Simulated scan of single mutants.
Amino acid sequence: MGGNMQELGHGFYWQEMEVGRKFKTIGRSVFETDVLSFTGVTGMNELLFNNLEYIEHESPTGKRIAPAVLVLALAEGLVMQGTLQHTGMAFLGMELDMKGPVVIGDTIHVELEVVESRAASKGNRGFVRTKNSVVNQRGETVLVYTPLRMMKGRPESA
């Protein structure tokens, strides 16, 4: 590539993740294929996900819901696209709070706020914690999680 050509999609360095900084991802709809593929791969063959008769008569929503861990995985995909490419080093832990169901056909996005940002004791890296709120098309927060990540620092020559 040319010397001054910037690569699109590059994530942020930890120094760029100042406490209080906020981001919003693009949206993504949740499709039946997502739920079927996810439950098939993971073996999560729960009646709430794959039995239409049970869903209609026994589910609290009466609709086909997406597993919470699928919603988390989709949210992480949205977050990674815009903030972590080339700069994310490790996912170190999180707290998770499910606030409401996500059903097939919902469109979700993630709203992030940096709540912690600090240098690591060694190496050109730091720790960043965000509060990630997964929000549906009705503006309802359906999931909140607070990942702590190790992220690369700006290149030494910058």
Rank of each mutant, 00 (worst) to 15 (best):
143 L>T: 05
146 T>E: 15
125 R>H: 09
37 S>C: 09
157 S>E: 15
25 T>N: 04
79 V>R: 01
134 V>W: 01
98 M>H: 15
121 S>H: 11
71 V>K: 01
149 R>P: 04
10 H>C: 14
32 E>T: 00
98 M>F: 15
44 M>S: 15
120 A>S: 15
2 G>D: 11
67 P>C: 13
5 M>Q: 08
11 G>W: 04
137 Q>Y: 03
43 G>Q: 11
104 I>P: 00
47 L>I: 07
130 T>V: 11
40 G>V: 07
149 R>L: 10
92 L>V: 06
6 Q>H: 09
23 F>S: 09
28 R>D: 03
23 F>D: 04
125 R>W: 08
22 K>Y: 04
144 V>K: 06
30 V>W: 00
152 K>Q: 12
146 T>K: 13
78 L>C: 08
90 A>P: 11
114 V>W: 03
91 F>L: 13
58 E>W: 03
37 S>F: 04
132 N>D: 14
119 A>H: 05
56 E>H: 07
144 V>C: 09
50 N>S: 13
14 W>M: 07
74 L>S: 05
73 A>M: 12
4 N>Q: 10
137 Q>K: 01
55 I>R: 05
26 I>W: 02
26 I>H: 05
87 T>K: 09
141 T>S: 12
78 L>Y: 00
101 P>T: 07
14 W>A: 05
19 V>W: 03
53 E>S: 14
131 K>I: 13
27 G>M: 02
128 V>Y: 01
7 E>S: 09
118 R>L: 11
111 E>H: 09
155 P>T: 12
152 K>I: 05
133 S>E: 11
104 I>S: 03
124 N>S: 15
58 E>K: 11
98 M>W: 15
104 I>T: 05
65 I>C: 10
86 H>L: 14
136 N>W: 03
42 T>G: 14
105 G>E: 06
103 V>R: 02
75 A>Y: 03
72 L>Q: 08
128 V>F: 06
18 E>L: 13
151 M>V: 03
8 L>E: 12
154 R>P: 09
115 V>K: 05
122 K>L: 14
85 Q>G: 11
97 D>M: 13
152 K>F: 10
115 V>Q: 05
10 H>K: 15
158 A>C: 14
64 R>F: 05
31 F>Q: 01
4 N>T: 08
93 G>F: 04
9 G>S: 12
71 V>A: 07
16 E>G: 10
59 S>W: 02
126 G>V: 04
66 A>M: 03
81 Q>M: 13
15 Q>L: 11
151 M>R: 02
